[in-house]
Design a protein around this nucleic acid. Sequence first.
DNA 1: TTTAAATAGGACAAAATTATCCTATTAATT
DNA 2: AATTAATAGGATAATTTTGTCCTATTTAAA
Lengths: 144, 144
Amino acid sequence: MFSKACEYGIRASTYIALKSLEGTRVSLKEIAEKIDSPVAFTAKVLQQLSKNHIVDSVKGAAGGFQIAKANIDQVKLSQIVYAIDGNKVYEGCGLGLKKCNSNEPCPVHDKFVQIRADLKNMLESTSLYDMTVGLEEGLTALKR
Amino acid sequence: MFSKACEYGIRASTYIALKSLEGTRVSLKEIAEKIDSPVAFTAKVLQQLSKNHIVDSVKGAAGGFQIAKANIDQVKLSQIVYAIDGNKVYEGCGLGLKKCNSNEPCPVHDKFVQIRADLKNMLESTSLYDMTVGLEEGLTALKR
DNA sequence: TTTAAATAGGACAAAATTATCCTATTAATT
DNA sequence: AATTAATAGGATAATTTTGTCCTATTTAAA
């Protein structure tokens, strides 16, 4: 569904949100440990998210990543996915046709439109705050 | 959503079904032209589909690919996707966790389950025959 | 002011996916 | 029997994605 980069991005952002709610900034090292991802690759993903103002990064000792508390329920998964994978999740023909729309559809166009819409809707309606609910109680997890 | 191989596989199977309904066998060359796919790569995909008994292949002069008429409305997209991409479309955590299920879910497990179920349902309920309807009239297309 | 700990970013490497090429095999036709 | 047209399959190449490594920069703290 998503690229590895995007999966790491969502998990990393969620962990950062979780710790930011507690008021603490987290290092790349800690993030990678807690979400079980390759450190250097995760760094690239976080750079991308930082450039897109989805997470804040602070350089230097005691630096790390954080998200302003006020933004945690404003940032939606759709923004993370877009920042990393672009719009190919939303656009692009399910059968790979270069051009495919309601006027000139592939045989499954309408059916894919529906599923894509559901996915898009889910991503647009799920905030990082939503993602953190359940993590403290161990009901959900970011690694396993 | 799907791999390139899978996209070619669905388009190729659909074209073969279309021609098989007319009672004619089609060559790899013709298929690749009609679905706008790389010839040799499409050959690999068709080998895979042939091994999985989704299409019949006939070697030698006047050979080619076909699907028994009686099977055209029996073969579902889900079989093609499974033959090429395996079950990773259906299984596998949306966030890339190695283990993720209703007992030990990731934060979006339930939401993904729903979307995956819709996709799976669509693939399981769409036959190659369904795919061909609209192709003759030019309402839908396999290349563009 | 030096040191240490952190992110930024460029260069590179490994792995997976996509794509091509060549030879072998098969079968109809001449 | 030879030729021709087709798929099968192995080897290889190109591209993309994933992942690593090293140096530069920044900042807090000693």
